Simulated scan of single mutants.
Amino acid sequence: MRQQGAWMKWEQAMERSVTWKDIWQWNPQRIKFLIQEVYDVLPSPSNLCIWGKIETPACPLCSKIGTLEHILSSCSKALGEGRYRWRHDQVLKSITEAISKGIKGRRRTQATAKTIHFVKEGQRPEKTPRNRSAGLLPTARDWVMSVDLERQLKMPPHITQTRLGPDTILVSEATKQLVLLELTVPWEERMEEAQERKREKYQELVEDCRRNRWKTRCMPVEVGSRGFASHSLSKAYGTLGITGANRRRAIGNNVEAAEKASRWLWLKRGEQWGQ
């Protein structure tokens, strides 16, 4: 019960609801995998050994104890073969697609934002309050996004010199704004640890950029290896200005990408890695 109830400790993970519509539309194997991975009742070597089905709980790749956590998040051989990196990139693609749509959507909105407000005779025009919750994307028209896919991303040399390469960089030259987004796909119980580790890693880089007079934000985000987004991801979308239905849709696509990739890693757990 301690093992199957571990999901109750996912303090940094957002709730995820599966509707009747999802149940009707999804492949039954997808629903089965999602439920079994959340409650840790998949037939991992560790569970099979506990259930008396096999004699040893060894991981088929590295011979360590093959728990579900080990297979989906901690196997050194899987890491060395690039399995976790492949999953990370699937989620990163999904996140950057949402940001790209947000940038394009803001540009279209800015192009058609001019409106005429009529005022009755004898009345003064009301001052339109500024929307302080609009986010960063509407504050500039020249956002350029660079993503660490296929080759390591490097910081623009005119901003600062560093060996660090975040997963995603958003730059506005006109307003001298810089956004660093760093994705981690950890085991859900380790989301907070991943957040703190990435903030500490990029703290000095952020300070260097600010000393060079760039308005810099660093946003570490997490999507769990079992397909649950962290609150940091929702907050990051809100900071950028991706809210409402667009944010819900984006997060839904992100967690689906993580879930599908983890299922593929699970199916290939004892096979040669070929994606």
Rank of each mutant, 00 (worst) to 15 (best):
A58N: 14
S234A: 09
G105M: 03
T162D: 05
G122Y: 02
N253A: 08
R132M: 12
R269G: 07
S225Y: 05
L72C: 04
W273G: 03
S234L: 11
R106E: 15
T67N: 03
P45L: 06
K198N: 06
S100G: 15
V144N: 11
Q272W: 08
I169Y: 02
Q195D: 09
E11M: 04
R106D: 10
K235F: 06
T139R: 13
G227R: 00
K268Y: 06
D167N: 13
R108G: 03
T19P: 00
L61V: 10
Q3W: 11
L180I: 01
S76D: 14
P125R: 14
A174V: 08
H88V: 07
Q110T: 01
R30E: 14
E196C: 01
D167A: 00
W26V: 11
E55C: 05
V91N: 01
D40Y: 13
Y84F: 15
I50G: 00
A13K: 03
S76W: 09
G80P: 05
G241Q: 01
A111R: 09
C209Q: 03
E207T: 08
E271H: 14
W273A: 00
G270I: 02
M219A: 08
C218L: 10
P57G: 10
T139L: 05
R248K: 14
E193T: 10
Q3S: 12
E69P: 02
S232G: 06
I99H: 03
C218S: 07
K260M: 07
K114T: 13
G244L: 05
E173I: 02
E126D: 13
S46M: 12
R269A: 00
R108S: 13
E188S: 09
G105F: 01
K127T: 14
K101D: 10
K235E: 06
L164N: 05
A134E: 06
P138N: 11
S133K: 15
E69T: 07
K120I: 10
A258D: 02
R16E: 08
P156W: 12
E256K: 09
R199D: 09
W51M: 09
R217L: 13
E207R: 10
G102R: 01
R249V: 04
D89Y: 12
V18T: 15
E204W: 06
C62H: 04
H70Q: 01
Q29I: 07
L180P: 08
T56K: 15
L79G: 02
I99P: 03
